[in-house]
Nucleic acid binder design. Sequence first.
RNA 1: GGUCCCAUCGUCUAGUGGUUAGGACGCCGGCCUCUCACGCCGGUAACCCGGGUUCGAAUCCCGGUGGGAUCACCA
Length: 468
Amino acid sequence: MKPIVTRFPPSPTGFLHIGGARTALFNWLYARKTAGKFILRIEDTDAARSTADSVDAIFNALQWLGIDWDEGPYFQTQRKDIYARHIEKLVASGHAYYCSCTPDEVNAMREAARANGLKPMYNGRCRERGLSKSDNTVVRLKTPDTGVTVVEDMVKGDTAFQNAEMDDFIIQRSDGSAMYNLAVVVDDITMGINTIIRGDDHLINTPKQILIYKALDADLPVFGHVPMVLGQDKARLSKRHGAMSVEEYRKMGYLPDAVINYLVRLGWSHGDQEFFTRKDLIEKFDLAHLGRSASMFDMQKMTALNARHIQAKSAQELAPALLPLLKDQGIAAEDDTFTHKVIETLQPRSKTLVEMAASARFYYVDAPELDEKAAAKFLTPDTAGILTRAADAIESLTDFTQENLEAVFKKIMADCDLGFGKIAQPLRVAITGTTVSPGIFEMLLALGKDKTVYRIRRALSIIASGSS
RNA sequence: GGUCCCAUCGUCUAGUGGUUAGGACGCCGGCCUCUCACGCCGGUAACCCGGGUUCGAAUCCCGGUGGGAUCACCA
């Protein structure tokens, strides 16, 4: 059996959006799953809209997602000779012909057809004229007038198109450049691509492409047209309509593994499983379970998945992605061991890395910024006694362990006849400045004895000065 | 408008003739508990409509409705 060869052919006319990423993912996953090959091809023939920045943005986004390619990137603008050669071959074999009709003339034909209630099409005027190449001639493919072209699609099933519905479409412009359908097919043939997974907006192009394959006497690839991704308003997600770049998700603190997991599940399923590691996906992805209907992008669900991936990672894995976010706040987290402990306390309560970075702030500042309401409620003369006892007892500990800390608090609880909550909240505010934080013990242990005592003493001095 | 695609809880989906229609996100309760989370338990909520086929349809067929894609010397 021949190895699977797939591809992802973005147009560099903007950032890589979520829908494009999903298509890339499906192709990549299928190649990896089958130990095949995944090729990247940049379709940059639209000179007016293609930019080098977009090319970089696409590379960066794919790299961030962990989608690597085995071959390429190829650039269509560098393959003009190849297209020209194939077009000449088609003309020579009688499958295509030169046409000298001007755009105005073709428009007139379309209008005329429309006026007669017919489909607006080029009428084939130059088809048998035997014209040769000259300025302003285009090349058209001679398409059958009768019969049907059937697209055998892995996800949509068989779809039949009437050949009579297709006109002799242009494959080469008057300036000699190749049109999209021709370039794609020639690329796919010459690159050995045998499996094409793409958006179902291409389904209607497919019969035209099949005709080109046949005219070129090439084997047909396997097609799979996946449905579009819709935005919250149920409108199709596109670059100009609410589709965020994958770069945006990185900035918002999403993990690439979570984005991949979410994207793949949007239109593919494996029974009831929701959480997938990258390894799972490569192992389990298949074409048979691709969905046939469009799906709506749901940020909340992706966020929930992100939280699960954050929990599933180790602090060591998370740290490199968190550090820049800390740096944005002016925090230079230099002590890796400390940062790893910090991360561990925050993992179960962070849905995104951005959230985690914000929650981590109090660990790194010299003294926490006090929340006014929290301080007013918990840093009072009433709690000063408890805090003093805590500071003294903790300071005298030779081993700063959870066991010893528990003993310290147990004693205060007994001496003052208080529940743990009465001690924990003032302490929490003293340490973090707010009433919300990781658990007392894990937090203190991460922070260490000196900083703990320092912060409690500082809170006490604030109480003493009556400034809260 | 022509052509083509699609249709299960609000959302993502499982389901391939016989299920109390399952899971996940969200939402609502409860438990756990030093706060917030996590976790756990429970609840809310769906087969677009109408015809067939069949002993029996979410599943098969036809029609309707609704949504989407596409109709270029763009990709």
